[in-house]
Amino acid sequence: MARQATAEKRQRRERGSINPDDIINGAFELAEQVGIDNLSMPLLGKHLGVGVTSIYWYFRKKDELLNAMTDRALRQYVFATPYVEARDWRETLRNHARTMRKTFVGNPILCDLILIRSALSPRAAKLGVQEVEKAIASLVEAGLSPEEAFDTYSAVSVHVRGSVVLQRLREKNMAANEGPADIEDTMTIDAESTPLLALVTEKGHHIGAADERNFEFGLECILGHAERLIEAHKKGAKKTAPRKR
């Protein structure tokens, strides 16, 4: 069942004793208890032990508070995500993708703020763009064209985010007891009418599930395509290189 939107009441603070950082910290604490969807200004006031007007003094509406939370979450996320390095691009990009997924899957609040809500302030958006620029520059140095590097990193990013969001929505549906958890839950698979599907799913494969197996398969497909592009560029460079006299 979904968690009820309740907050433990603290001893009331003195007027003017709270600041924006206190409010943001408290909002993260409360979101861990009730989730981002159920976070509200009155609940936060109760959690912090202040009148709701003290919160509105700094954040006029919930969206402003969520923007501040997202800014902080994005900075923490960028700091925790490893760089892509040109000299070992495939392994570092793979590690980059795996860490992104692990970070978001392990922190539902981070997922809800950055991936599902997707509302960033100009400062946070600039930070995100700078990190993407670094990754693309490394892939160009590794041998991809700027367009290929962009498409490769974009494909990895979409793959990671899609996998995480699907898993997060599955968790939300299960918590609220709303709808099927996976595509397989809506399908009838039996050995007589769908022998191949039955054979494979019996071995632990899942159709359309955001699980580790499907994530790794998709990631390796993207990395393999990028590696073939780099090899093609190397062969082309050798053919066009001037012969020594």
Rank of each mutant, 00 (worst) to 15 (best):
R3Q: 11
A5R: 13
A5F: 09
T6I: 12
R10Y: 04
R10K: 14
R12D: 11
E14T: 08
E14D: 13
R15N: 06
S17P: 00
S17E: 13
I18A: 02
P20R: 01
P20D: 02
D22M: 04
I23R: 01
I23W: 01
G26L: 03
A27Y: 08
A31Q: 07
I36T: 06
I36G: 00
N38W: 06
S40R: 13
S40Y: 08
L43C: 04
L43D: 07
L44I: 06
K46E: 15
V50H: 07
V52W: 02
T53Q: 14
I55K: 05
Y56D: 02
Y56E: 05
W57C: 01
R60M: 08
K62R: 15
K62L: 15
K62M: 15
D63E: 15
L66C: 04
L66I: 12
T70S: 15
D71Y: 03
L74A: 06
L74Q: 12
L74H: 08
Q76M: 03
Q76F: 00
Q76H: 04
Q76S: 08
V78F: 02
A80G: 02
T81C: 05
Y83G: 00
V84P: 01
V84W: 03
A86R: 04
R90L: 13
E91S: 13
E91I: 04
R94M: 09
R98P: 01
M100H: 09
G106M: 07
G106S: 13
P108L: 07
I109S: 09
C111M: 13
I114M: 12
L115K: 07
I116E: 15
R117D: 09
R117P: 04
A119Y: 10
A124Q: 07
L127C: 11
K134Q: 09
K134R: 14
K134W: 05
I136M: 11
A137L: 07
A137R: 12
S138T: 03
L139Q: 09
V140Q: 13
A142G: 08
G143P: 08
L144H: 07
S145N: 05
S145P: 01
E147M: 06
E147Q: 10
F150C: 00
Y153N: 06
Y153T: 00
Y153P: 00
A155M: 09
V158F: 08
H159P: 01
V160P: 02
V160S: 05
R161M: 13
R161I: 02
S163C: 14
V164W: 09
Q167K: 10
R170A: 15
R170C: 10
E171I: 00
M174L: 10
M174V: 12
A175M: 10
N177L: 08
G179A: 05
G179R: 06
P180T: 02
M187N: 03
M187E: 10
D190C: 03
E192A: 14
T194D: 13
T194E: 12
P195C: 06
P195V: 04
L196I: 07
L199E: 13
L199K: 11
V200K: 06
V200M: 12
T201I: 05
T201C: 04
G204D: 09
H205T: 01
H206Q: 14
A209H: 13
E212N: 09
N214A: 03
F217C: 02
L219T: 04
E220G: 00
E220D: 14
I222Y: 04
I222K: 03
A226D: 05
A226W: 02
K234R: 15
K234M: 11
G236N: 15
K238Q: 15
K239A: 12
P242M: 11
P242F: 11
R243P: 00
K244F: 10
